[in-house]
Write a protein that binds this DNA or RNA. Structure first.
Length: 675
DNA sequence: TTTGTGACTTAGTATAGGGTAA
DNA sequence: TTACCCTATACTAAGTCACAAA
């Protein structure tokens, strides 16, 4: 492929050259050149450094030069490529008109922007030009029709709009287990009261006397009606959604039209934390324009707030990647509108992440030697640090920041493990020095594991546990900040989470090597791939609730398999009979019949084996989620290389979205890529 | 040194919608 | 053509980590 495929050549660079940002205001230099409405067709930029070494640290001036150089080209390519998905915009500004003037040939091979072949900014700026239309707000509340009533203590009770809206949030969730939980109900009722008029407040004093059933039925009927809509009605909605996507779903960042990840503001509703969340049921309030901060370039066409409203603020900060933000009322944290994973800004970062992990690969043995040594340290803090690091490395645990208690579910990671989360056994089931982990991690997913550890680790753990209560910290002299500072000293850019990325990717690579048989057919190879992926998901503890229809699905599959088996045996019989015929008749026709039957047997055998593979795959996947590791931990170049090596269509491994996200890897990885 | 904040990545689940079997 | 099933996508919560402020 590319002579300048990046693999292995960039190891030493500071990944994407974003050194820590000297605070330079840039907007003024920016000066609008990005708008340039020229429409010379994108003659793909030729690189002076065609021989490919990606020069990591160009000085800023050079970056600018390049930017200027391509300013007329790129934006319009994107216009072309979007085209088969979206209806072309008719009106709009000058650039679009000029662009629209070009003849579009639909089936023309698309030319995608290869940002990974371009220089990256080194001054800490994330973009030079940013224009967008702002977020889409949740639709206003539509009061219930008169016949849908809320009852209190068995009698209809008319709620004012504010309280009614919040009541509908609860009504919609009635079938959910959440609404039976004490904490949820308590939080809900408290927040609901805040929305009530004084009369309502006086009257409605007991949630148990509130009857939301009629409302619940109404919403169910509505969703049923939506399903029953005619094709035409559905199409109308679809087109409207496409129109909104077209208008609000994209921005222009540095000459390129890029897809926004989440352009809709989160609608109001009841907060549903995960696990045992102390704030479940609280009211997530409606976000209005005056809550929203817009970020764009000064010289762009600023987004207009909805009629009669104002933004909270409009800023021009190109040191960040977000387009809009607001503060959410449950935890007081900030929510952002950002770009899609297929965008340059996300892709660059992703690529960088894997390059950091690959750098860890080249020094991980040194670090392991070091932490082993540290197990013997005289200092408690160093021993703790070393044991924690061992867990992070060996078990791919998360760092484990401290959390404010009472504010969130009680979950932990490595540094925040408590005494109650581990048990140590000098001997267990015939193994020496076993540690048993049992704790809730991110998203309150349980981590349970029993592993034998080295004797020194074991002795250290015993020491850490001495004289402590169950609720005490296991590593009382350690936190993520201390750990990461240490890691930073060991390798530039190293943090705890790099180990997860590294171990996940290296595991995939090893497993693929181990499991793939060149002689297998495609389905078997793909099963091997999925198994390799599964090994990683297991390592990272990526779980999912078994799909509700799991049992049924498996049953259906089994039925199919049984039928296929029957079909196979009868076809085999026919094959035998045909052979017998041919033997006695010796004519062409019967010989042909033998061939036909033979092929039929083969075909059915193949189908059967496909089904069986599918069943195995599914069964093994029951409680394991592959998506998370595939999307966030596995260097996509490993998968691309594997597909190339074994001639497996990439679509078998990555769906469309994933291929878009990993376009950089697909373009640059050859079959010999080594992580 | 500790605490808080902001930006960004990672996470599981709900649901829309497209394909397929009946 | 409809019902069903499954996948892709949308959604948003919950982490990590750097840096600033106290």
């Amino acid at each position: 492929m590319k002579s300048h495929s990046a693999d292995g050549k960039h190891k030493r660079e500071k990944e994407n050259g974003f050194a820590s940002p000297p605070r330079i205001k840039m907007e003024t230099e920016d000066n609008g050149f990005h708008h340039s409405p020229k429409h010379e067709k994108s003659v793909k930029r030729q690189y002076d450094d065609g021989e490919a070494e990606f020069k990591p640290k160009k000085v800023k001036v050079e970056v600018e030069k390049k930017a200027k150089k391509r300013k007329h080209e790129d934006y319009y390519e994107d216009e072309e490529e979007e085209e088969d998905v979206k209806p072309k915009k008719k009106t709009k500004d000058k650039k679009q008109e000029t662009a629209g003037g070009k003849k579009k040939v639909k089936k023309e091979p698309e030319e995608k922007w290869k940002w990974w072949e371009e220089e990256r900014a080194t001054d800490g700026s994330k973009w030079r030009f940013l224009e967008h239309k702002g977020p889409v707000f949740a639709p206003p509340y539509e009061p219930l029709p008169g016949h849908v009533r809320f009852y209190y203590d068995g009698k209809p009770f008319k709620l004012a709009t504010a309280a009614e809206e919040v009541a509908t949030f609860f009504a919609k969730m009635l079938d959910h287990e959440y609404t039976t939980k004490d904490v949820f109900r308590k939080n809900f009722f408290k927040d609901w009261k805040k929305e009530m008029t004084s009369e309502e407040k006086a009257k409605l004093t007991d949630l148990n006397k509130c009857d939301f059933n009629e409302m619940n039925e109404y919403f169910k009927a509505q969703s049923e009606a939506r399903k029953q809509m005619t094709k035409d009605e559905k199409l109308k909605i679809k087109l409207e959604n496409e129109r909104i996507l077209e208008e609000y779903g994209f921005c222009v960042m540095d000459n390129h039209r890029e897809r926004i990840g989440n352009f809709r503001i989160e609608p109001p509703g009841l907060f549903r934390g995960r696990g045992n969340h102390p704030k479940m049921g609280m009211l997530k309030r409606r976000i209005r324009p005056q809550d929203v901060i817009i970020n764009c370039s000064k010289d762009s066409k600023h987004p207009k707030p909805p009629h009669g409203s104002k933004w909270k603020d409009v800023r021009f900060d190109n040191k960040v990647t977000w387009l809009a933000s607001w503060t959410e009322n449950i935890q007081g944290s900030i929510k952002y509108i950002m770009l899609n994973p297929s965008s340059r800004i996300k892709g660059e970062k992703d690529w960088q992440k894997y390059e950091t992990a690959r750098r860890l690969k080249s020094c991980v043995e040194r670090l392991r030697t070091q932490y082993r040594e540290d197990w013997k340290s005289k200092e408690m803090r160093i021993r703790q640090r070393a044991v924690a690091l061992y867990f992070i490395d060996k078990l791919a645990l998360r760092a484990g920041n401290e959390k404010e208690d009472g504010e969130t579910a009680d979950t932990v990671g490595c540094c925040s493990l408590r005494v109650e989360h581990i048990k140590v056994y000098a001997e267990l089931d015939g193994q020496e020095y076993v540690v048993e982990f049992d704790f809730l991690g991110k998203d309150s997913i349980r981590y349970y594991n029993k592993i034998p550890v080295e004797k020194r680790v074991f002795k250290n753990l015993q020491l850490f546990l001495e004289n402590k209560q169950p609720e005490d910290d296991l590593f009382d002299r350690l936190n993520t900040s201390i750990l990461n500072k240490h890691l930073q000293e060991l390798m530039d850019g190293l943090t705890a989470k790099v180990f997860r990325t590294y171990n996940a990717s290296i595991t995939l690579q090893q497993q693929l090597k181990e499991l793939t048989c060149a002689d297998d057919n495609d389905p078997a190879k793909i099963l091997s791939y999925n198994r390799a992926n599964r090994a990683v998901a297991l390592l990272c503890n990526h779980q999912r609730a078994p799909p509700k229809t799991f049992e049924k699905t498996m049953q259906n599959l089994q039925t199919k398999i049984d039928e296929k088996k029957k079909q196979l045996s009868s076809t085999k019989k026919e094959f035998k009979a045909a052979k017998a015929d041919a033997k006695s008749l010796h004519d062409d026709k019967s010989r042909k019949a033998v061939e036909t039957k033979k092929k039929a047997v083969q075909r059915i055998e193949e189908q059967l084996m496909k089904l069986e593979v599918q069943a195995t795959d599914r069964e093994e996947n029951k409680q394991i989620a592959l998506g998370t590791s595939k999307l966030n931990y596995l260097d996509p170049r490993i998968s691309v290389a594997w597909c190339k090596k074994y001639n497996i269509p990439l679509e078998k491994v990555y769906n469309k979205t994933q291929r878009e996200k990993f376009a950089w890897a697909i373009d640059m990885a050859e079959d010999d890529f080594e992580f």
